[in-house]
Write a protein that binds this DNA or RNA. Structure first.
Length: 274
DNA sequence: CACGAGACCTGTTCGC
DNA sequence: TGCGAACAGGTCTCGT
């Protein structure tokens, strides 16, 4: 699914097209997309709501409306697009919002994992999220302390949204390679210097992802071009851009994990997490 | 607390 | 060509 940079890119494209617009009606085409309230209530409550602002929290899109907030998580295959003029629903459309001025906001999601909420206050949805990696709250010192609070493998820990909010499978692999840390490294074995490197790497890959308008892989094309600049993700068998060693793919926590066995050496292999 | 497996879903690509 | 397996940007729940 989209990770932080893809969500950020989508929001930046939606904002100018949607701010100030009123919602006329909603067409929910797959009930399980909607977490709350009930479909009937949702259709009534969202009518007449004006879109005042659209912001991002972790991988969630947060639409601030007149009274309520529309919260959307795109999960693996969700996408949002704005169509001007008449719109004919397509096969994978799960929620369609008809807006003023012949404008349509379409939530398309082939795999049906995406979720939508309409709430007065999203605090409950966000309450378990860790810090934003691009905020000042996320500092090298915080990261070092947080890593030492746990005994987890780095890769699954960085994917854990309650630890740090926004990284997904691609940017985690990219950040670990840039930081020269093996995905299975024990979090509490990371030195201060390594933590600082990881902090810098996370910032750098996310910022580059945003600068390149995100990554588009598979058939879910969103226009970004970060996929052409991956260091290791999906490049198993190819040469490491730093040292030329063949990039390896292993499975960690049921996620494909890509790394350079020469640049990213496991220093605690005598003391694995499990 | 930490991990692995299974579930939720559909579509594409890979391997024989 | 065909067909099943493997795989995909995420997250939740359960058992150990």
């Amino acid at each position: 699914m989209p990770e932080l940079p893809e969500v950020e890119t989508i929001i930046r494209s939606l904002r100018p097209a949607l701010l100030g617009k009123n919602v006329l009606s909603a067409n929910l085409r797959w009930n399980r997309t909607l977490m709350s309230p009930s479909p009937a209530k949702f259709k009534i409550l969202i009518q007449g709501q004006q879109i005042l602002d659209i912001v991002r929290r972790a991988k969630f899109l947060q639409f601030k409306l007149s009274t309520y907030q529309l919260i959307i998580h795109l999960r693996m295959s969700g996408d949002l697009l704005v169509v001007k003029g008449g719109y004919q629903a397509a096969i994978h459309d799960r929620l369609i919002l008809n807006l003023a001025d012949e404008t349509t906001l379409v939530f398309s999601d082939p795999r049906k994992f995406g979720r939508v909420w309409l709430v007065e206050d999203p605090a409950e949805i966000f309450q378990t999220l860790g810090p934003e990696p691009l905020s000042s709250e996320f500092s090298p010192g915080w990261l070092y302390a947080a890593l030492h609070n746990r005994q987890r493998q780095l890769k699954p820990l960085l994917l854990d949204q309650s630890f740090l909010a926004g990284l997904g499978n691609i940017y985690t692999d990219e950040a670990l390679h840039l930081a020269r840390l093996h995905p299975l490294t024990r979090s509490d074995w990371v030195s201060e210097e390594e933590a600082a490197r990881l902090w810098m790497a996370i910032r750098q890959v996310l910022e580059e992802g945003i600068r390149r308008n995100g990554a588009s892989i598979d058939w879910v094309y969103r226009g970004g071009d970060f996929q052409n600049h991956f260091r290791v993700y999906g490049r198993q068998g190819e040469s490491c851009p730093v040292c030329g060693t063949k990039i390896q793919r292993i499975v960690v926590g049921q996620r494909g994990t890509h790394f350079c066995p020469n640049c990213q050496v496991l220093t605690n292999d005598q003391n694995p997490v499990k």
